[in-house]
C-alpha cells in the first residue's frame, strides 16, 4: 500500500567504451528492486558489479539507457526527492579550500537552512562522525578516512529520510569501520531507509535487514540474509547429559569438544543429525540446540559470482 522508499524498474545503463568506434558496454542490466521505508539494504557485489552505476542513476548523475529509478515516489533527480535524501559518493572529494564546517554550511544553505541553523547542524553532525576537533581545518589537509566521515556528515545535513552510501567502509581503518557500522546501525534505528553498497560481505551480515546481490550488472539474488539460499555446510549440535565416552561410541570424538559440561558436536554434511539423534538419546543425552552451519556470505558470493560467463 505505502510507496516503497526506492524503486528500480528494469534499470539499464550502457557506457560507450572505445574512443574511435565506441561500443556500448552494459554496466547495469535490467535491475528491478524495491526497498521499503525503514529498510537497511546492503547492495552487494564485487568491483565492477554495477553498484556505483546504480547509485549514480538514482542521483541522476547519469541517465539510464532504459528503465526507471524512483525515490520516495519521485523520479530520480527530482528536487522533491533530493530534499529528503542524502548521498555519500564513492571515495568522496569536496573543496580543498573549505573547512568541514564551511562545507556543511554551504550544503545546508542549498537546502534552505540559514547560516546559523546550518552551523548548528554542522556542529552536531561533525561531532557525530568524530570530526568535532577538525571542523575548522581546511579539507585539503584531511585524510581519506576523514573525507569519508565528512562525506557521511554532508549526506545527513538535511536530516534525510533515505540515505545512499556508496562503499561507506572503504578508506577507513578498523576503528573507522566500526564507527561507520555503528552509524549505519543508528541510521536504521532512527527509522531512515539506508541503501548502502559494499564489496565486503561481513559489513552487510551485521547490519542489513535485507541484501541485494549484484554480479556483472545483474541482480542475482535478494532477500533477508537468513532466507537466502545459502548452502548448508553442516550442523552444530549441542547436547547435555552425555559423556565423552558416549560420543566416542558413536565415532564422533574427532569433531566434538566439551564446553561447560556440554558436548558440542560439529556434524558434516554427510552426517545428518536425524541419524545421530536417536543414538544419543539412547545414551541419555538431551539436545540443547541444533543449528545449521551455512556457508559464509563470501562463499555464497564466490559460488554465484564465479559461474561460467564472460570475463570483463
Amino acid at each position: 500500500m505505502s510507496t516503497p522508499a526506492i524503486t528500480l524498474d528494469g534499470l539499464t545503463k550502457d557506457y560507450a567504451v572505445g574512443f574511435w568506434r565506441p561500443r556500448p558496454h552494459r554496466a547495469l542490466d535490467q535491475v528491478s528492486l524495491e526497498v521499503a521505508t525503514g529498510e537497511v539494504l546492503g547492495y552487494l557485489g564485487p568491483n565492477g558489479a554495477g553498484k556505483t552505476t546504480t547509485l549514480k542513476l538514482l542521483m541522476q548523475l547519469i541517465y539510464p539507457t532504459a528503465g526507471t529509478a524512483e525515490i520516495l515516489g519521485c523520479p530520480a533527480g527530482d528536487v522533491d526527492a533530493s530534499l529528503r535524501l542524502g548521498y555519500l559518493p564513492e571515495l568522496p572529494y569536496f573543496y580543498d579550500n573549505l573547512s568541514a564546517e564551511e562545507l556543511l554550511i554551504y550544503f545546508g544553505g542549498l537546502f534552505g537552512l540559514s547560516t546559523a541553523d546550518a552551523r548548528e547542524r554542522a556542529t552536531t553532525l561533525l561531532d557525530r562522525v568524530g570530526l568535532g576537533a577538525a571542523r575548522h581545518q581546511r579539507l585539503r589537509r584531511y585524510s581519506k578516512g576523514m573525507l569519508q566521515r565528512v562525506g557521511i556528515a554532508q549526506a545527513l545535513v538535511n536530516d534525510p529520510e533515505v540515505v545512499f552510501l556508496d562503499e561507506p567502509m572503504s578508506g577507513l581503518d578498523p576503528v573507522g569501520r566500526r564507527d561507520m557500522r555503528e552509524l549505519i546501525r543508528q541510521l536504521g534505528a532512527e527509522g531512515r531507509t539506508v541503501f548502502f553498497s559494499s564489496h565486503i560481505l561481513s559489513d552487510a551480515e551485521a547490519l542489513c535487514s535485507r541484501v541485494a546481490i549484484m554480479a556483472r550488472g545483474k541482480l542475482i539474488a535478494t532477500g533477508r540474509i537468513a532466507d537466502l539460499a545459502f548452502e548448508v555446510r553442516g550442523w552444530e549440535l549441542v547436547v547435555s547429559g552425555a559423556s565423552a565416552d558416549d560420543v566416542r561410541a558413536l565415532g564422533l570424538e574427532e569433531s566434538t569438544r566439551e564446553v561447560d559440561g556440554r558436548q558440542v558436536i560439529e556434524l558434516a554434511i554427510d552426517q545428518p543429525p536425524d541419524r545421530i539423534l536417536p543414538e544419543l538419546a539412547r545414551h541419555g543425552a538431551q539436545v540443547v540446540s541444533l543449528t545449521p552451519r551455512h556457508e559464509s556470505l563470501e562463499d555464497y558470493f564466490m559460488r554465484v559470482v564465479s559461474q561460467p560467463g564472460e570475463a570483463s
Partner: peptide
C-alpha cells in the same frame, strides 16, 4: 574532475 559534483548535484539543485 575532482568529483565534488557528485555530492553537489545530489542536493536539491537543478
Amino acid at each position: 574532475e575532482r568529483r565534488s559534483i557528485y555530492s553537489l548535484l545530489s542536493k536539491p539543485i537543478r
